[in-house]
Design a protein around this nucleic acid. Sequence first.
DNA 1: ACATCAAGCAACCGATGGTTGCGCTTCCCT
DNA 2: AGGGAAGCGCAACCATCGGTTGCTTGATGT
Lengths: 110, 110
Amino acid sequence: MTVTINDDLWSAIGDPTRRRLVDLLLATGAGTATSLSEQLPVTRQAVAKHLGVLDRVGLVHATPSGREKRYQVDEAQLARAVAQLNAVGDAWDARLRRIKRIAEAIQKST
Amino acid sequence: MTVTINDDLWSAIGDPTRRRLVDLLLATGAGTATSLSEQLPVTRQAVAKHLGVLDRVGLVHATPSGREKRYQVDEAQLARAVAQLNAVGDAWDARLRRIKRIAEAIQKST
DNA sequence: ACATCAAGCAACCGATGGTTGCGCTTCCCT
DNA sequence: AGGGAAGCGCAACCATCGGTTGCTTGATGT
C-alpha cells in the first residue's frame, strides 16, 4: 500500500537549503531574502528563488513592507508537510517491523 | 536548534521516483532494474541510475546473480532514514506547537 | 551454436540550484 | 531636498540531475 503524497510539497522540503530556510524562519519568526541569505552559505538570489518555490507550494507567505518583503511560515501548510513526512516514515517503519517479524518466524521454524 | 541530518540520505529519498522504488522493493522483497522499471512510468536506465544513488547512500544493496543484479533494501539504513524523517518532523511540530502556545498567550493577554 | 534477455555505456535534452552583473525603487541622512 | 545606500527583481550563464534513445557486451537457455 503506497502512501499517496503530494510530490510538490515533498520536493519543496526535499532540498536541504529550503529545509534550512524553513528552520530559520521558524526560529526567527520572519525574514527577508537578504537577512536569510546572511545566515546561509548561498547568495541572496538563490534564497529568493527558494522562497519563490516555498511560496508557490504555500509553505511560506510574503508580506511586502516598503522596500522589504518579509516572509513567514504558513503553519497550516507546514503541519500538512509534517503529516506527510510522518505518513511515509510510518509506512516504511511498519514494513520494516513486518519484515523483521517474518524473518524471526522463519528463523524459529528452522 | 536545527536538526543535524545527513543531506545525502535525505535527498536520496527526496526524489519521488526513488521513494516509489523503495516502496516497490519493500513490497516485493527484491528486484532488478528491469523488473522494477516495468512497474514504473520510467525507463530501465532511469531506474538503474536511481538504484545507483540509492546504493551509494547505502539504502539498497545489490547482489549480482548471473546476468541479473538483484537489489534489496538495507533495513538498517532505511531505519536510519526514517529516524531522520521523524526527527525533522518532530522538530517542526514542536516549533509549531510552541508558536501556537505563544499566540494563544498573547491573545489571552489582550 | 545462436537467439535472447539483462545490464552497461554514451550522448543528448530540459529543469533546477547556484552564481555574477545590472537596473530600479525605497529609504534615510546630512 | 538631494544623493548614496539598501533591498529587490531580472537576465545570462554554468553544472548537475532526472530522463530519454541507441548501441554494445555478457550470461542463459534451448
